[in-house]
Design a protein around this nucleic acid. Structure first.
Length: 485
RNA sequence: CGGGGUGUAGCGCAGCCUGGCUAGCGCAUCUGCUUUGGGAGCAGAGGGUCGCUGGUUCAAAUCCAGUCACCCCGACCA
């Protein structure tokens, strides 16, 4: 197997190497699209399971809407059509005939979902309507990168309708919090929660909130968004209801989504020069047992012991580690590969723990537990192995978050002049907290000159008098800038 | 669309500048034996329209022209 490019040499190539070597994804025959391989998809399934549970807990139901949207639907909301038109894939012929109306392959589903919501909602009694959809979407981007930006990607999109603006705003923030908790607790990826500026918000939204993560190369990654749509789509599609007072009003709506981009975020947050590192709570496989033996009698003893160990590990209560189920264990019985080969392979694939079991260990009544994150080897008594594994998985999860958090905090710099801003951007990258005069013109000018964009106006930003780093005009709070993916 | 790069075995590449004899190497695959605690060793085997088209030449993977594809960097991307 070829070497993985060093992180510090070429971060972009390193990322692509990890994706390839850990067998997460492959390039597809269609340019810009991506084949998600079993290793990558298993991680997505874990993410889906956790998120879907959270959505259900918060009262949402899953549904499914068509991937083809009549072109006219896209045109009903002015900002929406303007935002998405350049990246639409459109089907004009089907069944050997030219279609009467072209079909857009959904870039997002607000329009087609509203066409149905308008039928489903008659009264305030039908509200709130809380729907989620797991789907694929297509956006014809010029430049793609596995997981981070692909022509077709998998995501979930929540779409809700409410009686009042306050209800919609509450939902928008509630789902942002679901995303924050998912990112930090499960992905061990610290995020900033904030609001997008008008020029960065979703096409058709009134307000867009987001979680922003920081990658190891100092670039930001928008990891999830939650939009308060106001009544924009409801008005465009006639999603109207009779109010408690007997009047009529348009539904107040939200939409929110996270995608397979999260997998890219996970890779760029935790992985190292040896390969992928998966946080235990997202790992499809937690422990791999590598049996070691020479003679046949050793083999029998080692393997039968390994099986017993695997059973006891699976049966061990693991609630404390919050893995979303039992500990997942695999014994690698492949006899065509040497133990050393297996060590390296599972490190590339990011399996959190490796359990080595050989004749020496049997003699001593111990096992060797090797951590993927720190490479540390722990020699523990065989009977203590299951409990020790739960403990180590928790420590790994915690350790990954702490490490990422430290990196993020060290790379969130407060800056008060434009010169300093540019210097920090060149030297370190990272998040930069600075004053901005609140105008789209200034934002645009900074972007053109430095490639840095306003990632968000943090939700916890405190009122603070200051002056815009670019124009010197007054500013009431700091915003966070960064170069971004 | 601009800049850079690459097309040679399943994968990764050398060879090209300076044309030449049977197109080579590593990994992987297959066979056999020895191995197995950090990507095993030895011996053998199979696998090729040298991206495509045309040109120059006694002779082209190599030189020339054209063409196609892919990759990377930018532009784009709420």
């Amino acid at each position: 197997m070829d070497k993985i490019t060093k992180r510090t040499e070429d971060f972009s190539q390193w990322y692509l190497d990890i994706v390839q070597h850990a067998k997460l994804a492959d390039y597809s025959p269609v340019k810009g699209c991506m084949v998600i391989r079993p290793n990558g998809y298993a991680i997505w399934e874990k993410m889906q399971k956790v998120l879907d549970g959270k959505f259900k807990e918060t009262g949402h139901q899953n549904a499914y809407f068509p991937m083809f949207i009549p072109e006219s639907f896209i045109h009903k909301e002015a900002e929406h059509v303007e935002g998405f038109s350049p990246e639409l894939a459109i089907v004009t012929t089907a069944g050997g005939k030219k279609l009467e109306e072209p079909l857009v392959v959904r870039p997002t589903s607000e329009t087609i979902i509203n066409s149905m919501f308008a039928k489903w909602i008659q009264s305030y009694r039908d509200l709130p309507l809380l729907i989620n959809q797991w789907a694929n979407v297509v956006r014809w981007e010029m430049r793609t990168r596995p997981f981070l930006r692909t022509t077709e990607f998998l995501w979930q999109e929540g779409h809700t309708c409410h009686e009042t603006n306050d209800d919609a705003e509450e939902e928008t923030l509630k789902m942002l919090e679901v995303y924050r908790e998912f990112a930090e607790h499960y992905m061990a990826m610290p995020v900033l929660c904030g609001r997008k500026t008008d020029s960065e918000k979703f096409a058709g939204a009134v307000k867009t909130y987001c979680i922003e993560a920081l990658m190891q190369d100092g670039k930001a990654l928008q990891a999830g968004t939650s939009h308060n749509l106001g009544q924009n789509f409801a008005k465009a599609f006639g999603t109207e209801f009779q109010t408690r007072e007997g009047g009529r009003d348009f539904a107040w709506q939200t939409s929110w989504g996270v995608s397979t981009r999260l997998i890219g975020g996970m890779v760029m947050t935790h992985s190292d020069d040896k390969g992928l590192v998966i946080p235990p709570r997202l790992a499809p496989l937690h422990v791999v047992i590598v049996p070691i033996y020479k003679k046949p009698e050793e083999k029998d003893a080692v393997i039968s012991k390994a099986r017993l160990l695997a059973d006891s590990i699976r049966a061990w209560p693991s609630q404390k580690a919050d893995l979303g189920g039992p500990i997942s264990v695999k014994i690698d019985l492949d006899e065509t590969k040497s133990p050393g080969w297996k060590y390296a392979e599972y490190e590339v694939q990011g399996i959190p723990l490796r359990l080595e079991l050989g004749p020496k260990d049997l003699a001593k009544g111990q096992v060797v537990l090797a951590r993927r994150d720190t490479s540390e080897k722990n020699f523990v008594a065989m009977n203590d192995a299951p409990a020790e594994i739960v403990k180590l998985l928790s420590q790994i999860q915690e350790g990954l978050f702490e490490k990422a958090k430290r990196f993020r905090d060290e790379n969130l710099r407060i800056v008060d002049s434009y010169d300093q801003f540019k210097e920090v951007l060149e030297k370190h990258g990272g998040f930069i907290s600075a004053h901005w005069d609140g105008t789209a013109e200034t934002e645009q000018a900074i972007k053109e000159e430095t490639k840095a964009t306003i990632r968000c106006i943090p939700l916890d930003a405190t009122e603070e008098e200051g002056v815009c780093i670019k124009t010197g005009k007054p500013s009431k709070r700091r915003v966070v800038f960064a170069r971004a993916y």
